[in-house]
Design a protein around this nucleic acid. Structure first.
Lengths: 332, 332
DNA sequence: CAAAACCTTGCAACCGATTGCAAATCCGAC
DNA sequence: GTCGGATTTGCAATCGGTTGCAAGGTTTTG
């Protein structure tokens, strides 16, 4: 089957230690034996078994990447970035797709069985307690897109969702929308609640505003569409902050059903600035979330935790900004 | 750190073998020792180290999942399905995101270092030789969305792309389109070429048809849009077969730029039937590719190869069918 | 009750690597 | 030529498990 250390050692006429050392950074091997070993290794097509060495070194370079957002297109971008960033640093993503059935404790156990060096929880719809479960099990963990306030033990990377809520309300108000609404993600997502809180805070500063709100069942096209259809049936507000671009796009579809023009008849502002929002047919005004920076920072944190597992927990929060496109009326 | 076999054995007052056996299916342990061990294990929070055991058993349950299509939304569905299907069978997806820079041989080596039990190459834009490299390295491999004809050594799961090309041409022709075009994926993708071939074959049976063709740089929105803009500038055909839904959606965006109505002014038929194609605002007539079945079959094959690595290679090809929506004119 | 057949258990070797330690080798300096 | 220090090398233990084998214990059978 696979070529082992022993066979290379035999062919090169040296001890197994010598072979091992030629393949480990900074070990002392003379140029002579090194070249003998390298020749033998090349001849046999040997490359060291990462799993076997992990036994003694205690490092697998395996990183658990856990998510449950396989229905929001933004996550294709997220996975793309994550897998690349990890690969570039010689780390290997081991994916866990959390479905509704999977017990959180199961995934913790499974990832421990595979001795992952760390875990990344990439989701704003998982409770902080989930990420904490990894921490408690002794697995270094970063909660990307998590809530910063509540996690005093877990590293969090993401944005200030409360501030985004405020920002959206300000944006709507400054464009003269008076009756405004929040169309948020699922109620149990911290992101949905935080954005709601910020939105409401800002509304209260503007007594002229009238506000409604609702929460979609998921961060998905269908859920956004559904919720907006409901709004239209009940008599809609003039402008909406949708808690995610994919909700916005669902909402836009509902508007189009009713022959309503976004930006003219009803305003929509989203959050994320995903690729699709830039498409001419979508042209969504939205709050840009710096995905790339967030992911780079997450992987940076992972690397630092590998060096120092006891690293004091930290929240890395990136500012967002409004990207003006066509779904809000122009500023007066 | 982590609890080991030895500690459990000590606590339970039995040998290490006994502990190992209670955790392996079908080993002989008396109910008495089993319960002693289980109690001790629960108390210590022990669960066996999958990597360590893989050393002796030769099985890691790690499956390499390799792709390069992180820009086509359909792949979010693909990853969702794959990760779930693998998880359900106790297999763990180790992701490789092939960027343009990564050498194929590197990923082969890497996956061998992690002793993956098998690899799945999920892409129609990678050459058959790529999947074959795994085979040659002794790694069981399935090429999902691969070309069936060329790979006599590698399992292939997918569709008959040539037939899909024919089907699209027939569909356009039967709706009275006379000047038709093929807007394909990248020239080096076997899927793009096979669909082209089928399309042309069918066209030749219909002397009344006039045909043009072009190939986009990638299976992406931007590339599809780009190519359609070009077509519009040069004087477009009446109906197009776009080699993928995401190309179609790009093309639709180009049409909308020019104030053209799909289905009325210009016909479009896609391929894939991804979630987005069902959206009311897209409403794309398309050839349905049974993703779910394809992926289930791929994972089935993987499982069977785990049992019998020398399994005779096989192609599993699923039929496709046209899904009628709004982007082709009605049948006369 | 003894013999035969069957279970259960622990010992010890092994999977493919790493690494502390001591022995062996090398080097230049005296 | 000898000595001392620095390198290089191999031995052997170890990482966390699995498993063939033989010994010990149970149950069945006559």
């Amino acid at each position: 089957m696979s070529v082992t250390l022993k066979e290379v050692a035999a062919l090169a006429g040296v001890s197994r230690s010598a072979v091992s050392r030629t393949f480990t950074e900074g070990a002392s091997v003379s140029p002579k034996t090194r070249s003998k070993v390298e020749k033998a290794a090349a001849e046999l097509g040997y490359s060291p078994n990462a799993l076997a060495s992990s036994l003694t070194t205690g490092r697998t370079k395996l990183i658990g990447l856990i998510s449950n957002n396989f229905h929001n297109p933004i996550f294709l971008e997220v996975f793309d970035q994550f897998t690349r960033a990890l690969q570039e640093r010689g780390l290997r993503p081991l994916i866990v797709n959390l479905t509704d059935e999977t017990e959180p404790t199961n995934s913790v156990r499974m990832l421990r069985q595979y001795s992952v060096d760390a875990a990344i929880v990439a989701s704003s719809t998982l409770p902080p307690s989930f990420a904490k479960a990894f921490h408690d099990a002794g697995v270094p963990v970063v909660h990307t897109f998590g809530r910063s306030a509540t996690s005093t033990e877990v590293h969090v990377v993401g944005i200030d969702n409360v501030e985004c809520g405020r920002m959206a309300a300000r944006e709507l108000s400054s464009r003269g929308y008076r009756r405004i609404g929040y169309l948020g993600g699922p109620k149990d997502a911290t992101s949905a609640m935080d954005r709601y809180r910020g939105f409401m805070e800002e509304v209260e500063k503007h007594p002229e505003l009238e506000v409604t709100h609702c929460f979609a069942g998921a961060y998905s096209f269908e859920a956004g569409r559904e919720e907006m259809l409901q709004q239209l049936a009940e008599g809609p507000a003039e402008g909406y902050f949708c808690g995610d671009d994919i909700l916005s796009i669902g909402a836009l579809s509902a508007l189009s059903d009713h022959g309503l023009k976004p930006g003219k008849d009803i305003g929509i502002i989203g959050l994320n600035d995903m690729e699709m929002s830039r498409w001419e047919s979508v042209d969504l005004t939205t709050i840009h979330q710096p995905i790339k920076q967030i992911i780079t920072a997450s992987v940076d944190l992972v690397e630092e935790m590998l060096k120092d597992p006891e690293r004091y927990p930290e929240a890395r929060i990136f500012p967002c900004r409004v990207i003006e496109r066509g779904t809000l009326r122009p500023r007066p």
